[in-house]
Design a protein around this nucleic acid. Structure first.
Lengths: 189, 189
DNA sequence: TTAAAACATTGACATTTGTCAATATTTAAT
DNA sequence: ATTAAATATTGACAAATGTCAATGTTTTAA
């Protein structure tokens, strides 16, 4: 499992990362089953997760307790509630596995260790943050102006893996439309 | 003008910032008039702006060339197209002043100088990035699930200054609703 | 100060999307 | 393998929002 993360890091920081193997010891490996929650809103988010395999859902509840999904993240990506992780304030979002998933978790102390052992690691946090930010900006700009049908087309074009792997219910919640509308419009594409 | 930025930085990094005055020399002061564009999509974003007074709009065009506004940022805040600024790739968003504005601009070289002169300054970029990220996450989670009326109420409660200062047209574009719907629902609140 | 332009409001109507309910299909657990 | 639960589809209808057009109001610039 660690090997996948190793490749991921090398592809970003280059081959010559000193102490990489020691650094990777800071990650704890865990397996989570489908529908297992790994963060509840109100708790402090203690870890940043690297997804080795599977898929995580980041979501909130609206006032009628419907879930709305801010993000769906698959293998070879990072996932966390970064705002809570960074500030140690209670999280405003929930995270759960929507597929059986293999994760590598690192806590703040681990991050600290890494920064000291591998100076370039400073960049990794910045990269994760920048990627997350870019993703959310993109999501706002893409979605505010699009109709339900256009959102579906967008997902098919740019996130085809999500479309084929996940339930309609989940996709609809990610697109911000009802299941019924999703079901109907899907047929029209 | 610089004095306001100085207070802003002191409030975040504390009183004892070494070389602060020299650091502030890296900022160029500029005045922009209403409707003046300071970044066009396709260009590389060269500056991060601190808004001393006024208001900036960050927006994109949809396929019918309507503007959709991702953010409206007022005085005492930072504004940039951070993804372009960080990567030096072409910007995907436009920025314009929607009020006559006084800005302090710093370029990458200036940022570099600051990091070297004031070690704590490293934090400032991270803080700007984190704040921007938190803001966009909040925007996604708040808006995806809200009706037009609820969005208006939200704006009145949490961004009352925007509501009173800016045109209905702009506010509607920020809320992702038509001007007419905004006009009608505003009366019902 | 005045004319032109931009913006805001309102009505009529069309379109999109949501809700509820019934049924079919798939998935999960024993 | 069988049954219960969850998910997906479809219809009928309601509610929300958008579009177009007409008019009134405010802002801007000469």
């Amino acid at each position: 499992m660690i090997e996948i993360l190793k490749q991921h890091i090398i592809s970003r920081l280059g081959e010559d990362v000193t102490n990489l193997n020691e650094v990777l010891q800071n990650f704890k490996s865990l397996k989570v089953s489908r529908n297992e929650t790994i963060l509840n809103q109100g708790e402090v988010c203690k870890y940043v997760y690297f997804i080795v395999s599977g898929c995580l859902q980041v979501y909130v509840y609206d006032k009628e307790f419907n879930e709305t999904t801010r993000d769906l993240i698959i293998e070879d990506n990072w996932c966390s509630e970064l705002i809570s992780f960074g500030s140690q304030q209670p999280a405003t979002e929930n995270i759960r596995a929507v597929e059986p998933s293999e994760l590598l978790a690192i806590d703040r102390q681990g991050f600290q260790n890494m920064m000291e052992t591998v100076p370039q690691f400073d960049k990794v946090y910045k990269q994760i943050l920048e990627a997350s930010y870019a993703n959310s900006v993109y999501r706002i700009n893409t979605f505010v102006a699009l109709t339900a049908l256009e959102r579906i087309k967008w997902l098919m074009d740019y996130r085809p893996k999500l479309m084929s792997r996940l339930s309609s219910k989940l996709i609809a919640s990610y697109l911000g439309i009802s299941q019924e509308t999703f079901s109907r419009l899907k047929a029209k594409v």
